[in-house]
Structures are given as C-alpha cells and as structure tokens.
C-alpha cells in the first residue's frame, strides 16, 4: 500500500467510524462538548452577570410559561437574578471543580500506584494499606464535617475532591504496571540501559493509558455528584459563588412557586452524569471488547 492510499484509507475510516457510532454516544459527546464550551466561555456568552439583581423581575418563569418575560428568557430567581446566566456560571464552577478533582485524584492515584509497583515491599504494603483505608472510610461524610468545621475554603474543598476516588486509580495503576512491566518491550528497553523512570513514562504509561482513561470517565460523574451533593447541603460552594448543586439547594425552598429554580440545574447535572456514563461505557467497549458486558 502506498503512502497516499494509506492516508486516504484512514480518513475514509474516520468518516465511517463516526457514522457507525451510536446516536446516543454522539448526543452525549455533543452535550459534553457544549458543557466544556460553557466551562471556558461562560462569561463571554452570559447575558447578565450571574449575581446581577433585577428586583422588578423576581421569580420570572422560563419563556413558554405564563408570566414569563423576554428580558429573562430562562426566568429569574428570588432576587431577580437571570437564571440562564446563573446556570452558565454554575455549570462552569461545577465542571471546573469536577475536572480539577478528577484530574488531581487521577494524578495522585496514578503516581502512588506507580510508586507501589516500582518500589514493592514496604512501600507497596504502605500504599495499598492507605488505599484500603481510603476505601473503608465514609469519605463523603468526613468531607461534610471537614467543610463544616474548617469553613469556606476553596483550597480545602479542592483537596477534598482530589482525595475522593484516588484509591481506584492507585489500585488499577499498580496492577497494570505490574503486568506491563513484565511485557517484552519493557524488559527490552531496560536492556538498552534505560532508567526505570524512562520506561515508565515513555512505554508503560502510554500503554496503560486506555484503562486509566476509562476510569477517568467513570470517576468524573461521581466527582461531579460529590461536589453538587456537598454544595446542595450548603457546604461546598456557598453564596456569593454558585454551582449547579448550590443552585439546586437554593431552589429547593421555592418548589411550590418556582419549581424551575430547582429543576433546571438538576436536569443539567443529570444530563452531565448521563452523558459521561454513556461515553464511558462506549469508550470501555472500544478499548477493550472483552469488558463490553
């Protein structure tokens, strides 16, 4: 096969692959792309500042409903703050926190997993003991207490999110590294005179990235639920800041007169977790057909 036909073949198969992808996966991917866009550009697209108060238009319903106004098409809350703008900023906060929490947890877990596999012995025992400990304690409840007692600190909140779920990455990474290290190519590269760190970073990490990526998609929805749950209880993101969970917690008090205040952010959270679950299932099937069930 010549080089040009190879390129054509690849492009062709990309188009075919896209058209072979299930509609649900495309929809989920599109929705997550939209959420990522909001995460980055919320301030660019928002019609109002998220904390801009418009007392003349309080508790306006979204447009198709009776009493709605085109000044605030998505409605307003009890202080007349534009719901659409708040939704954008809330989504931004929740997405950022979940992404940061997931990535920090992943980096921590992967690093510790590598360390446990590499050092073995007492290091392995210690790290795996820590993993068991983390898995055996009610982290959500401890997080709740820490946040309540140590107050409204973003650093602490992010640290708590990072510590949520790291143990799964550590466990997976350790197992993957232990088996990847015995692969022929890892031993061969060692035989070329490479340092262990070279082999880990250049060969083993890229080769175990697939399962870790799947774990990332599995972990992301639970991290965003972790954040929104705590914020819902009034402990994570607190006013004047806002997140999807905080909006939902606030809207809960007005279910009778303004149900949309709770339902709109709630639906957003639901669609994010749903999309990520669909994407994660699909990715898992793609990367390892034996795990498809």
């Amino acid at each position: 096969m010549t080089a040009t036909s190879l390129v054509h073949g690849r492009r062709f198969s990309l188009i075919r692959r896209l058209s072979n992808t299930p509609v649900t996966v495309l929809l989920a991917g599109g929705f997550m792309a939209l959420m990522l866009f909001v995460m980055v550009f919320a301030q660019v697209v928002q019609p109002y500042a998220f904390d801009h108060i418009d007392l003349l238009n309080r508790m306006a319903p979204p447009v198709p409903l009776e009493g709605s106004t085109w000044i605030h098409p998505a409605g307003t809350d009890t202080l007349g703050r534009d719901l659409f703008s708040r939704l954008l900023v809330g989504t931004q906060t929740s997405m950022l926190l979940a992404l940061l929490g997931t990535c920090l947890g992943a980096v921590l877990g992967v690093a510790l997993g590598f360390l446990a596999a590499h050092k073995g012995g007492i290091w392995d025992e210690g790290i795996m003991g820590l993993v068991d400990f983390q898995a055996a304690m009610p982290w959500f409840i401890i997080a709740l207490a820490i946040l309540a007692f140590l107050g409204n600190s973003m650093v602490i909140f992010i640290a708590i999110m990072a510590l949520y779920g790291w143990e799964t990455y550590a466990r997976i990474t350790r197992g993957l590294v232990l088996s990847a290290r015995e692969q022929g190519y890892a031993l061969a590269v060692r035989g070329l005179g490479a340092r262990p760190s070279w082999i880990y970073l250049r060969h083993i990490l890229p080769n175990i990235a697939g399962p870790l990526l799947v774990q990332l998609t599995v972990n992301f929805p639970s991290t965003i639920l972790f954040e929104t749950s705590l914020s819902f209880l009034g402990l994570g993101i607190r006013p004047p800041m806002t997140s999807l969970g905080q909006m939902l917690g606030e809207g809960r008090d007005y279910l009778i007169n303004a149900w949309w205040l709770a339902v709109v952010p709630g639906l957003t959270i639901f669609f994010i977790t749903l999309s990520m679950s669909i994407l994660g299932d699909w990715l898992r099937g793609k990367l390892d057909p034996s795990l498809e069930d």
């Binding site: 929805p221 969970g245 939902l248 917690g249 279910l255 149900w259 709770a262 339902v263 639901f270």
Partner: peptide, 18 residues
Amino acid sequence: SVFGFSMPNFFLGILLIL
C-alpha cells in the same frame, strides 16, 4: 439502568416531591 444511576439522588427526591 444508565438513567437510574446517572440520576442524582437529591434531584430525584425533589422531582418526586414535585
């Protein structure tokens, strides 16, 4: 089942109340 476990319980509770 994907719908079921993607649904945040606090939101489900509020929907049920509504």
